[in-house]
Amino acid sequence: MTWFNAILQGILLGGFYALFACGLSLLFGVMGIINLAHGDFAVIAGYVAVVLVPSTHLPMVLGFLVVVPIFALGGYILQRTLFQSALNRGDPLTILLVTFGLSIITENSLLQAFSANGQSINIGSLIADSINPNNVISISDISLVVLIVAVVVLGTLQLVLSRTSIGRMIRAVADDREAAELVGINHRHVFGIAAAIALATVALAGLASGMITEFAPSTGTSNLLFAFEAVVIGGIGSLWGTLVGGIVLGVAQQIGAQINPAYQILAGHVVFLAVLAVRSRGLFAVREAA
């Protein structure tokens, strides 16, 4: 039963990783951006919530109503200015250096403004509530909520991408930017919208991390590596793949931790490398880009 519990906890953790990873997957899949500042953006979301939400008299749990629109707008502006200038240079390393610079700037600005102390988003009694079907298994309510949010967000995104006209445009520019331009799509605007969606999801991930555990200016980087692992295990271009990738990683880590707490992260890495060795494009990779 303890093993069953480990798998269950892994699935819950995987939901969080998937939520974290889906914005990364979108930026990577659509614009080819390896966003090294993704983890730091999530940390900013936590601080924005801590600073702004109390003044709106909303309960903290509803903080996303404030933070997500700010991040979506910020994502659009960031893409249309800085990221687009970097993409215009035509060298993938330019955007890597830009996001790397943003990561350093963000982390140290937060350090300057809020100190290195950990913070969390106070959601009152919800943090302690859990479902206990027996004395071994304990499902924390907030983790379950995060998993559900991740499934809903990824499902909605999948629907938007496959069924709506903006989704078709995003897929079109991701596949072939020049051809999309020829049929009259403004790829810069579409990139902006994709970035807005990506930043909206990273805001949710940042809030989730602030509710489940603590965050500090330096927590971005470790979450970033797990999110990258989830994206690569799942395969670029497949959002359901990202969800499965997150869950595979989460389960691997929890089973590793069950064997020996020191092996938690290592077990995740081993599974990641094993997936690469067997299927180097991830479990659910969409057909090879032409």
Partner: peptide
Amino acid sequence: ALVFRTRGGYFAIATWVVASAAQLVISS
């Protein structure tokens, strides 16, 4: 032999994971 199975961004992430795994193995 392992990381050369990947290209571009995947390669970058794979090498990072290898480094992190090496650290965890040495630490144990």
